[in-house]
Lab assay of single mutants.
Amino acid sequence: CHSECLGNCSQPDDPTKCVACRNFYLDGRCVETCPPPYYHFQDWRCVNFSFCQDLHHKCKNSRRQGCHQYVIHNNKCIPECPSGYTMNSSNLLCTPCLGPCPKVCHLLEGEKTIDSVTSAQELRGCTVINGSLIINIRGGNNLAAELEANLGLIEEISGYLKIRRSYALVSLSFFRKLRLIRGETLEIGNYSFYALDNQNLRQLWDWSKHNLTITQGKLFFHYNPKLCLSEIHKMEEVSGTKGRQERNDIALKTNGDQASCENELLKFSYIRTSFDKILLRWEPYWPPDFRDLLGFMLFYKEAPYQNVTEFDGQDACGSNSWTVVDIDPPLRSNDPKSQNHPGWLMRGLKPWTQYAIFVKTLVTFSDERRTYGAKSDIIYVQTDATNPSVPLDPISVSNSSSQIILKWKPPSDPNGNITHYLVFWERQAEDSELFELDYCLKGLKLPSRTWSPPFESEDSQKHNQSEYEDSAGECCSCPKTDSQILKELEESSFRKTFEDYLHNVVFVPRKT
């Protein structure tokens, strides 16, 4: 048989008469490798580009789960590009990614509803959504962080984005990388972005840091009482949809009607710091009717980097990364020049730590249904340095008659930039024990000054392991946590139920 035959053949030295091919099969003959313009397919066939392209389009058009959109890589027609490569849609070739590779997620039936953290986790790592997304989240724990972890990498949506009755959302900033909504599939009414009845939605994105392009379709905003109209108009300008909307697409009466839409800028007039305090004062603000001013709200939190936005980490279910302080308005003076500047002394802060701070007014709604208010920009203030805590785990070892090696770990709280350490030492008198000992005694162990690591005695271990207080009263049991108490109650309830079950099964009433 021919060298490319495997198993047997019907005619000697003829690659077209093989029972099976050793390498690849091409047009009725066995070959060692697939010549151009053919590609290896499933490690035994040679196919042309049209064959591989037909497989790709067949799966793409069917949208069946589990099928493969075949691509070409290293002269092979394979189910998908290997790690580190992405497909070129024009020629199906796998090309190296520039940075992290995109991950295209194809949605069944063309859309997916995100109504819980669990459903959001199914899209973790996706960068391109081939379909439409509907966000409908009523509640949950730590929602802002969970949504950002699972949806934060999405850069492109081919269909539309719909935010509907998501009472738990305060902001859409968890879509931190969303840059493009194509609108290839539109919501009824030709809408590519749809926001309806979101009672706590206050911000779409921080438009000073976020760009969003909507290729096709219109915007729809109705019944978002805490979303200011200025935020919607800003989205029109940034996304390129200005002029597409009709009169009733953006409701003037049901958007922002319960919001404090600040239209003035508060400026800080005085800032002073110490290692654990920050004193702030800002310019006074009074609405047209000074009785509408209820006070100020001061927001602050630790910020290692200057990239904080107002609604980071917030949701309507209680999660809030900001510390909020309510401040009463100052006494009002008739003389504008003698107006008191409101302020606040922030206490209990960490030394040498940068804080993000902003302040906003708290006002009631005027009778004319106009909203007044003022808010400052987010500023960054760093507390002063102070003395560091003591170095940890000092170790001293003498390696000769004239040297001592000293080692330690950095302090747990540096409280500033540590530039150097101060080492103090003092000579001590020799131990009298060394002169009084009889060095001729056998088995004498000389006193040693070398360091030995501390260890816990058996008594201390027994005390720590004991669940009861000892007789001397030195140790006591740790208080039980809520989960331990709940577990004990469940076990007790189970024992009672099981005992009742045994009584009912074992003891049967005697027939009379």
Results as ranks from 00 to 15, higher is better:
103 K>G: 15
108 L>W: 15
108 L>P: 13
109 E>G: 15
112 K>P: 02
113 T>M: 07
113 T>G: 06
113 T>V: 10
114 I>D: 00
115 D>I: 02
116 S>F: 06
123 L>T: 03
124 R>Y: 01
125 G>R: 12
125 G>H: 13
126 C>E: 00
126 C>Y: 02
127 T>M: 11
129 I>K: 00
129 I>M: 04
132 S>D: 05
133 L>I: 02
134 I>G: 04
134 I>R: 07
134 I>D: 14
136 N>V: 12
138 R>C: 02
138 R>E: 04
140 G>E: 05
141 N>Q: 08
142 N>P: 12
142 N>S: 12
147 L>D: 00
148 E>Q: 12
148 E>V: 03
149 A>L: 07
149 A>D: 11
150 N>I: 11
151 L>R: 00
153 L>M: 13
158 S>I: 13
158 S>F: 10
158 S>E: 04
164 R>C: 04
164 R>F: 13
164 R>M: 15
165 R>T: 15
166 S>M: 14
168 A>P: 15
169 L>C: 15
169 L>H: 05
170 V>S: 08
172 L>A: 06
172 L>H: 00
173 S>F: 06
173 S>V: 07
174 F>H: 06
174 F>D: 00
175 F>K: 00
177 K>M: 04
177 K>S: 08
179 R>Y: 11
181 I>M: 03
182 R>F: 06
184 E>A: 07
185 T>K: 14
185 T>S: 12
186 L>A: 07
188 I>S: 07
189 G>E: 13
189 G>K: 03
192 S>A: 03
193 F>P: 01
195 A>R: 00
197 D>S: 02
199 Q>C: 13
199 Q>M: 12
199 Q>E: 15
200 N>Y: 07
201 L>C: 03
204 L>F: 10
205 W>T: 01
206 D>W: 03
208 S>L: 14
208 S>H: 06
213 T>P: 02
219 L>P: 05
222 H>T: 03
228 C>E: 02
228 C>P: 04
229 L>P: 02
233 H>Q: 11
233 H>G: 02
235 M>K: 00
237 E>W: 14
237 E>H: 10
239 S>A: 11
246 E>N: 08
246 E>S: 06
246 E>K: 07
247 R>D: 05
251 A>M: 10
254 T>A: 08
255 N>Q: 09
257 D>S: 02
257 D>A: 15
258 Q>L: 13
259 A>P: 14
259 A>M: 06
260 S>I: 12
260 S>P: 09
260 S>F: 02
261 C>P: 04
261 C>W: 03
263 N>L: 04
263 N>S: 09
263 N>E: 15
264 E>F: 08
266 L>T: 03
267 K>Q: 11
269 S>F: 00
271 I>A: 03
272 R>L: 11
275 F>M: 12
277 K>P: 00
278 I>H: 00
281 R>V: 03
281 R>N: 12
282 W>N: 01
284 P>E: 15
285 Y>K: 05
286 W>A: 06
287 P>W: 02
288 P>H: 08
289 D>E: 03
289 D>A: 04
290 F>A: 13
291 R>Y: 15
292 D>C: 09
293 L>F: 09
294 L>P: 08
296 F>V: 04
296 F>N: 04
297 M>C: 08
298 L>A: 01
299 F>R: 14
300 Y>C: 15
301 K>N: 13
302 E>Q: 11
302 E>T: 09
305 Y>T: 10
306 Q>L: 11
307 N>A: 14
317 C>G: 11
317 C>V: 06
317 C>W: 13
320 N>S: 06
321 S>K: 15
322 W>Y: 11
323 T>I: 03
323 T>Y: 03
323 T>N: 13
325 V>T: 15
329 P>F: 03
329 P>M: 06
333 S>I: 05
333 S>N: 01
335 D>T: 13
335 D>P: 03
338 S>D: 01
339 Q>H: 12
342 P>C: 06
343 G>P: 01
344 W>T: 05
344 W>S: 08
345 L>S: 13
346 M>N: 01
346 M>H: 01
347 R>S: 07
347 R>K: 14
348 G>F: 05
351 P>E: 03
352 W>R: 02
353 T>C: 02
353 T>I: 14
353 T>R: 07
353 T>Y: 10
354 Q>P: 09
358 F>A: 15
361 T>M: 09
361 T>Q: 14
369 R>D: 03
370 R>G: 15
370 R>Q: 06
374 A>F: 03
375 K>Y: 08
376 S>K: 02
377 D>H: 05
378 I>V: 03
379 I>W: 06
381 V>P: 06
382 Q>S: 15
382 Q>I: 14
383 T>P: 00
385 A>F: 05
386 T>M: 10
389 S>Y: 04
392 L>T: 05
393 D>Q: 11
394 P>D: 05
397 V>G: 14
399 N>D: 15
399 N>H: 06
400 S>D: 15
402 S>L: 11
410 P>S: 15
